[in-house]
Simulated scan of single mutants.
Amino acid sequence: MSQASDKVVIGKIGAPHGVKGWVKINTYTDTPEGIFDYQPWLLGDGKEYQLDQWRPHGKVLVAKIEGIETRDDAERIKNLDISITAEQLPELDENEFYWRELTGMQVVTTQGYDLGVVKDVFNTGANDIIQVRANAKDAFGLKERLLPFVMDEVIQSVDKEGKVITVDWDPGF
């Protein structure tokens, strides 16, 4: 399967809200309301759903999804992931990356030392972090490393086609 046809999880259906099929929305987008910029949604079973309406309700977002008319309907979709296809994501500039693109890339130092493969990417508040699973043959006995994803300081280059991230990093750390 190519990355272009992959599903990207952008949120999750929460508890029913009221009796007319409205549901709470848990969003994973940068801005909470950004989840509503993407349509159609693919819910758990892969079926496409269109959004009818949405609104803020206190500190949460609630939405009415077409075809979900009752509280029982809303209960049926509760806790399902909200996904979109990768083609629905905006195009990024040359030096911007989606976390999903970095996962699985090989990480090597500027001196050619193979640190391993990106297992995960997350944010600490200060900056993004790549979690690198070390190769079984790691000479330093490390099983994984956490490297700050800071361009030009730590991250020297990202080769999307070659799937290699070059870093300025001490392999013993």
Rank of each mutant, 00 (worst) to 15 (best):
M1R: 10
Q3W: 11
D6K: 11
K7W: 09
V8N: 00
I10P: 02
G11W: 03
K12F: 01
K12W: 04
I13Q: 01
G14L: 05
A15D: 12
P16Q: 04
P16A: 07
V19Y: 11
N26T: 05
T27K: 03
T27N: 03
Y28M: 06
Y28H: 06
P32L: 00
E33N: 05
I35P: 02
D37G: 00
Q39C: 02
L43T: 01
L43G: 03
D45Q: 07
D45N: 14
K47D: 10
Y49H: 09
Q50F: 09
L51V: 08
Q53A: 09
H57D: 08
K59T: 12
L61C: 02
L61E: 00
L61G: 04
V62W: 02
A63L: 00
A63D: 01
K64V: 06
I65W: 05
E69D: 14
E69A: 12
R71Y: 09
R71F: 05
D72R: 14
D72T: 13
D73H: 13
D73F: 07
D73A: 07
A74E: 01
R76M: 12
L80Y: 11
D81S: 15
D81V: 07
S83I: 04
S83E: 15
A86M: 10
E87F: 13
Q88Y: 01
E91R: 15
E91D: 14
L92P: 04
N95W: 13
F97E: 05
R100M: 14
M105W: 06
Q106P: 01
V108H: 04
T109Y: 08
T110S: 13
T110Q: 12
Q111S: 13
G112F: 04
Y113Q: 08
G116W: 00
G116N: 01
V121P: 06
T124N: 15
G125A: 07
G125F: 10
G125V: 03
I129E: 01
Q131Y: 11
R133D: 13
R133M: 15
A134P: 07
K137V: 12
D138I: 05
A139V: 10
F140D: 14
F140P: 01
G141Y: 11
L142P: 04
K143A: 14
E144K: 11
L147T: 02
P148K: 11
P148V: 09
M151T: 08
M151C: 07
M151Q: 12
D152F: 07
E153W: 07
Q156M: 12
S157N: 11
S157Q: 08
S157V: 02
K163W: 06
I165N: 04
T166G: 07
D168Y: 08
D168I: 00
D168F: 07
D168M: 06
D170V: 03
G172C: 08
F173N: 11
F173T: 15
